[in-house]
């Protein structure tokens, strides 16, 4: 198996392929993608993706626009379920379980993954209810527990002090940077194991971006984080591992330091030097 996507996970993966018996993966929080192919209306959007995401670290997926990085991210929490044009082949194994398996409940999959979208999208309700929404639908009923959860996560993202007296106000009145942190709090409140970020800072000003980035670095102590980003500098700043994609394929992946200082593929070097973007 000479697949370029295997750089930093080769040990686990090669075992799987060479020994032809399915090795049981150690059950910590990893995502491992095996032979993933995604087609949208006969277009081969993702080709032979093999990748394992290490736990409690930040993995950044980079690449020029249209390379399939957002599609890949959305594959991880089954957001393609409602678009029948999208055909998915292969396995995405999260915590020992193929999320595209037969008996898998999509709600459980999504509950494991907190998604932070490109543009913040507060729900049409108060700041408080935004954060409380997830826990409520997942069965948290006691007022006290809800209050506690909301305050805890608003504090966590540093929003609590800013919105204190007005948590009952509509969330749409917050600044866009605050909204994005609110969305992060809302995502954390469902107690996910993974955090997915889809260019989560691209709509934000530099100061808000910095706050979100600091948040990610703090979060990786407890969560496995996968970010799609369009800026190389951001990846350099916060990522532990880099996955570089081009035209639906993983070209190169590895630790941040190695990726930037010692890229192995010509395509990667071209991309890093800015000959295309």
């Amino acid at each position: 198996m000479n697949n370029p996507g295997l750089a930093f996970v080769s040990d686990v993966f090669e075992d799987y392929h060479n020994k032809t018996i399915l090795m049981k993966l150690p059950s910590y929080h990893t995502i491992s993608i095996r032979n993933l192919n995604v087609y949208i209306e006969n277009q081969h959007i993702l080709q032979d993706i093999n990748l394992t995401i290490p736990e409690k670290s930040i993995t950044c997926i980079i690449g020029p626009s249209g390379c399939g990085k957002s599609t890949l991210l959305r594959t991880l929490n089954r957001m393609h379920d409602d678009t029948p044009e999208v055909k998915i082949n292969g396995q995405v194994i999260v915590d020992d379980e193929d999320i595209y398996g037969v008996n898998v409940n999509v709600i459980d999959v999504r509950k494991k993954m907190g998604l932070l979208a490109q543009r913040p999208c507060p729900l049409p309700m108060s700041i408080f209810d935004n954060v409380a929404y997830g826990p409520r639908i997942h069965g948290l009923k006691k007022r006290k527990a809800i209050n506690q959860t909301v305050i805890q996560y608003l504090q966590y993202v540093g929003l609590w002090d800013e919105v204190r007296g007005r948590v009952r106000n509509s969330a749409s009145k917050l600044s866009i940077g605050q909204q994005q942190r609110l969305c992060l709090a809302r995502g954390l409140a469902i107690e996910p194991e993974y955090i997915l970020g889809d260019e989560a800072t691209s709509a934000l000003d530099p100061i808000s971006t910095k706050k979100i980035e600091e948040m990610f670095v703090k979060l990786k102590e407890q969560y496995t984080i996968i970010l799609v980003t369009h800026t190389l500098r951001q990846a350099k700043r916060i990522a532990d591992y880099i996955v570089f994609m081009y035209l639906g394929k993983i070209i190169e992946s590895g630790s941040t330091e190695e990726f930037f200082n010692n890229p192995k593929k010509q395509l990667t070097r071209d991309y890093l030097s800015g000959s295309f973007s």
């Binding site: 929490n77 957001m79 409602d82 709600i107 459980d108 999504r110 509950k111 993954m113 907190g114 998604l115 979208a117 543009r119 999208c121 729900l123 049409p124 309700m125 929404y133 997830g134 639908i137 997942h138 969305c183 809302r186 995502g187 469902i190």
Partner: peptide, 24 residues
Amino acid sequence: RDLPDALLSLGATKYEMSKVILRQ
């Protein structure tokens, strides 16, 4: 699509999602 996506990614069912969307 942002709002339905945000709701689904929080693990809402379609029914729960529709209720929030209706508010919007």
